[in-house]
Write a protein that binds this DNA or RNA. Structure first.
Lengths: 213, 213, 213, 213
DNA sequence: CATGAATGAGCTTTCATTCAT
DNA sequence: AATGAATGAAAGCTCATTCAT
């Protein structure tokens, strides 16, 4: 019992120490989101985190490194949730709907992260290129999976260039997030999922319907 | 006749002088596209333009001002071409197709501009905010116009939230450009227009077709 | 007759051209007085004078040179008036009174010059050192003359260290001008002459009077 | 006992750190006195102080701020000595004599400060305006006090415009300092106090004496 | 003579990073 | 581990001066 208690305490200590790592990370994200990466100073991050400037260099190689770590950390975390959501659904269209709902929900919940992903994606390219690319790739792979499964199910057209479909979907979702980020009024982002999926699935044309009649 | 010749010469001289304005602008765009706005130095721009550092300040108030001027200048220019393309087509779906083709064509032709628009849109927000926003708004207005006309024509579904359709389309196009910008091999961007429009119009679902059968 | 007319015209032209010299000089003084020498730019002077930047270098070796020329020009001009005023008076105390009156009058009339003399005297030292020193010396020589004559006349004490008297008087006058320059309300500077001279002559003490009684 | 020793050590350390503030201040004064404010560069001050350029900005907001702090610091310090000297003397004329002696002594002792006060008073006006004005006002208030007391004592004439007397005296002292600053040979400045006061009190005229006869 | 566009040396200031404590 | 004072390279920007027109 004692050993267990001790071990738990050690864990807590470790976690507390690790906490400084996360403390800085969270602070950095806040500052980056507020001012942009290049406009933010290490001193500001330190102040926001409540640590000394020098302390940051005990946990991160340099300023760029903070960003890289952020994307590594967040990407894994968020992506796991995406994956879970997809696995959870029965059919392809539900998978897509769930994925997008989760995507919007996560970004709505953590606006700072959203800003960094949307804004930063391009801004920093070379710094966090690998991480962002990995994230983007994982996302697109998810969509590929869904599309291919849907094609087998029969719910998704077979005459599609899947590479393009991925961009088509990611682009739509991104832009919806973007608009939300820049909007004054904070409407519910997740509620955009259903109409958006409906657009992805049915398109804007009347052709299919027309043919019916 | 002589006076006319003279006046033309004067114009040319004037244009040559004005050319220094554009010389710097073009140089700046090249440098910004290569290194990002904040990573670029005024000295680099000057060197790229083949002028002295100080010369830049004869034509621009400061570094930010260069970017603002670029967007002012480009936005107007590009948008007029978009507008012309839309006016040119007969029906709504052709209008949409033409708009997107032109969009892709312009960005393919001027890769530096493309980078600045995609990268910069977010990065610099506060500097060129007005210009970029105006551009974005004009673009979305064009789409609104097309969609509404299409709805009257009967080629576009009436049960659409137009505000969402605009993001849906702009997002898709943007993402296609983005992917192209990041790709190694330089494939023909314009050739993505037709399949992309097809996606916008018909969606990825089989529902319409299914109903047929 | 014709030749005379021509020659006059030439003179006028010359004078007009020379006028550009004075034009720049006057403009410079205005700008220097307003902003201080180091805060003023050559471009500002050019603009104030209504000439091109480069033109200034046709008349002056460099920015410093403008100041040197100003002091050369003004010093001679003002000093001649001082000298005339002194020569004009009958007795020493009147000479002193006249000198100070003229001094205050000239500086009241040309506030910009006043500022340059008071402010600039020290500020620029090394630039216009010689001119200012010469002016100062001429002034002090005038006072020396007056004092010595007054001593012979019997109106001025013989037991004085003349070198100190000169500073005593110049300092008092300077400070009165200074205060006037910094004051909000523009009172009549010349009216300070009589009470000031009275102070110089009688001092603030009651000793002489006391002895009387 | 140990704690006290420790606390003293801490104080010394603190003082050493504060010393960098004064170190820079002293260096700046030296450089300003040598070259004038606008001719001095921050790099020169840093070199003179033996610190890095950036260090200066840890202690001062900018270059101007150094000057402002100098005047704040010196003015208070010097003025307290003036005040003490005045309070110390019995009668008004001794107060005046003591004040002027101290004034000359302080400026003789710290030639750099003297230069900054004489030169800078006008040069920088807008930067250190408040400080210098305050100093000047305090000085003139001291004189006012002395004069009024002297008038009650009977040692100073009652028919005086005190506002003018203040300028009369400050001007004389200033000019004596000025001359000393510009002189090659470094004579004893303080020794000018007695003859100067004598001039202030008795004036240069023979009227009082004349009346005697 | 006059112009004013162009130059580039030189300045102030910022800030990522280090290191003695 | 943590600190934060110190560093100094590097950047944006100004402006006296030149020179082709």
């Amino acid at each position: 019992m004692r050993l267990e208690a001790l071990s738990r305490e050690v864990k807590i200590n470790k976690k507390n120490k690790n906490d400084k790592y996360h403390l800085i990370l969270e602070a950095a994200v806040k500052v980056f989101a507020r001012q942009g990466f290049y406009q933010s100073t290490v001193a500001q991050i330190a102040r926001e985190a409540g640590v000394a400037d020098g302390t940051i260099y005990l946990y991160f190689k340099n300023k760029d490194d903070i960003l890289v770590h952020f994307f590594q950390y967040k990407t894994k975390q968020v992506f796991e949730r995406f994956r879970a959501e997809v696995n959870h659904a029965e059919n392809s269209l539900d998978k897509l709907r769930n994925l997008i709902k989760r995507h919007l929900a996560e970004f709505q919940r953590d606006r700072d992260m959203a800003i960094l992903y949307q804004v930063g994606t391009h801004q920093i390219d070379r710094l966090a290129e690998d991480q962002i690319r990995e994230m983007s790739k994982m996302y697109q792979d998810l969509i590929s999976e869904i599309v291919e499964a849907g094609q087998q199910e029969g719910s998704i057209r077979k005459d599609l260039y899947v590479g393009l479909v991925k961009r088509f979907i990611l682009g739509g979702v991104d832009e919806v997030i973007n608009t939300w980020l820049h909007s004054e009024r904070e409407y519910d982002l997740v509620s955009m999922a259903d109409p958006l999926v409906e657009l992805f699935v049915r398109g804007i044309g009347t052709l299919g319907i027309t043919n019916d009649e």
